[in-house]
Measured scan of single mutants.
Amino acid sequence: MDALKSAGRALIRSPSLAKQSWGGGGRHRKLPENWTDTRETLLEGMLFSLKYLGMTLVEQPKGEELSAAAIKRIVATAKASGKKLQKVTLKVSPRGIILTDNLTNQLIENVSIYRISYCTADKMHDKVFAYIAQSQHNQSLECHAFLCTKRKMAQAVTLTVAQAFKVAFEFWQVSKEEKEKRDKASQEGGDVLGARQDCTPPLKSLVATGNLLDLEETAKAPLSTVSANTTNMDEVPRPQALSGSSVVWELDDGLDEAFSRLAQSRTNPQVLDTGLTAQDMHYAQCLSPVDWDKPDSSGTEQDDLFSF
């Protein structure tokens, strides 16, 4: 819950932080000083300027060897085509990944977070970031790969997607708890209302004896509580940590079903599988986004697919 609360507080303090972009060759504004600060901008989305290598189908939802083989196929196909790589912007948030063309600003792909089953910074092609997700059109699994400016960037994108998945799962947990509370309150309110109706004398007997209905007592009954809980029953509950912020979080049926399955089948359902080692994760978390744009010590960066 700490990640969720800190993310909400950060967004309320400075929503404009989320509009910064990394990996864009110096076009961005001043960047936060450390990885923790940038992680807090996830709610509205972190932007990464990358190059799209392509996509291939895979048979399993996750796995280092599986993704490595898929990336190898994608890279080989991209090299064989001889075409310049498409420059894209990857927007990562707890909602998922939005992929747009840098030149036309046209939407290429919009992947809900619950469809993503794996992401990684490839070991062999260490400047490549990739994720595996279920197609929104059918049940097939797709591996999408992107060329980053350097290994640090690939690791940073991988960690960002993993963190977005974690925050999304926490949102789901909060929403589920809130819905259970509202359902319980609604049920209790309905029981109270039913009890009051059972003990209320029939209207005919009131008229016969000349008694008047006590409207004041009726007004004191917990009807307002019942209506408050039943009027918006169809509205999706939102985490309290975000009250007053500009973010509107809505959970669709697909996300609810997917996270429910994860909660039942996995020990740590909030953790998205990645190909990063503990050492890689520690190294990337210690980086400032400013470091992502620094040239690798191995030599001059080449803006070309064939540089790796």
Rank of each mutant, 00 (worst) to 15 (best):
E59F: 06
V157H: 00
Q60D: 01
K150C: 06
F129T: 08
N34I: 11
V271G: 02
V290T: 05
I97P: 01
T41I: 11
L57V: 07
G189M: 02
A68F: 03
D183G: 13
S140W: 07
S298Y: 04
T277P: 13
K19W: 13
K220W: 02
L85C: 01
R115S: 10
L99C: 10
E188L: 05
T89P: 00
A69H: 12
D303G: 07
R196N: 08
A76V: 12
E257D: 08
E216G: 03
L159H: 13
K62Q: 10
S16E: 07
V161A: 06
Q187W: 02
N34C: 04
P237I: 04
C199I: 04
E217L: 12
V128D: 01
G8D: 09
K176G: 05
E180V: 14
E44L: 15
E170K: 08
T300I: 08
E142H: 03
L159C: 09
S93T: 11
N229E: 06
L242H: 10
A121D: 06
L203Y: 13
L50G: 06
R27A: 13
T77L: 08
L215D: 08
A162Q: 13
C199Y: 15
V236E: 07
A130I: 05
C286E: 09
L43H: 15
S93D: 03
P289I: 03
V92G: 00
Q155M: 13
E64K: 06
D126F: 00
T200K: 10
H28Q: 14
Y52K: 13
S67R: 00
Q106N: 05
E257A: 01
A68I: 02
K79G: 01
M233W: 03
A10I: 06
A263D: 03
S135G: 09
E44S: 10
E178S: 14
K83F: 06
D291H: 11
A133D: 09
Q136H: 10
P61T: 12
T36P: 10
C143P: 00
L159Y: 11
M124Y: 05
Q139P: 12
R238C: 08
G190V: 04
K84R: 06
I132T: 01
A70Q: 02
L99W: 11
P94Y: 02
W35F: 02
S49N: 13
E142N: 10
L57D: 07
T160A: 13
A18L: 02
A195Q: 14
F259N: 02
K294P: 02
Q60N: 10
I108L: 07
T77P: 09
K220V: 06
G23S: 14
G210Y: 06
L99D: 00
A69E: 14
A70I: 02
K179V: 07
H125K: 00
E64C: 13
R9M: 04
A7S: 13
Q163F: 12
A78W: 04
A69R: 13
N211G: 14
K220D: 13
R238T: 06
A208W: 02
G24H: 07
V290M: 08
L147W: 00
L99I: 11
Q285G: 07
D252C: 04
M55S: 07
K181S: 13
R196K: 11
S135E: 08
K83M: 11
T158C: 14
S227F: 03
A130K: 00
R29G: 13
G210D: 15
D198S: 03
S227T: 13
Q20S: 12
W292C: 09
V167N: 06
N229P: 03
F171L: 10
T120A: 09
R115K: 06
E235Y: 03
I74Y: 01
D101Y: 07
L31M: 14
P295N: 04
S298R: 08
V161C: 05
G189S: 02
G210I: 06
K87E: 09
Q139Y: 06
H144C: 15
L53E: 00
E178G: 14
A162S: 13
N268P: 05
V75Y: 00
E217N: 15
N102V: 15
A154N: 00
S245M: 07
T218P: 11
V128R: 00
E180H: 07
N102L: 15
L50V: 05
A228M: 02
E178P: 09
P295A: 15
D234K: 04
R182Y: 10
Q20C: 14
I97D: 00
A18M: 04
S298E: 07
S67I: 14
E217Y: 05
P94C: 07
C286Y: 13
D253Q: 09
A80S: 15
S246H: 02
L276P: 07
W172Y: 03
R13P: 07
T77N: 14
I108D: 00
R196Y: 02
G54M: 01
L99G: 06
S93L: 15
N34Y: 07
S260H: 10
A76L: 02
L215C: 05
D303N: 07
S81F: 06
C199F: 07
S67G: 13
L287C: 03
K204R: 08
V271H: 10
K91P: 00
D293Y: 06
K123G: 14
G45D: 05
G194Q: 03
G8L: 00
L17M: 13
R182V: 10
Y283K: 11
S224K: 10
G194D: 06
L66H: 04
P295H: 09
E217F: 03
T149C: 10
Q264E: 01
T158G: 13
L42R: 15
L213E: 14
S245C: 11
L66S: 07
V92L: 12
L141M: 13
Q173L: 13
P32N: 15
F171T: 02
R238I: 09
L193N: 04
Q285C: 06
V174E: 05
D303V: 06
L212Y: 11
K204A: 13
A162L: 10
K184H: 08
L159A: 12
Q139V: 11
A68Q: 01
C119Y: 02
V207F: 03
S186E: 07
T200F: 02
P94M: 12
A69T: 15
A208F: 03
A154Q: 01
K62N: 10
K62H: 01
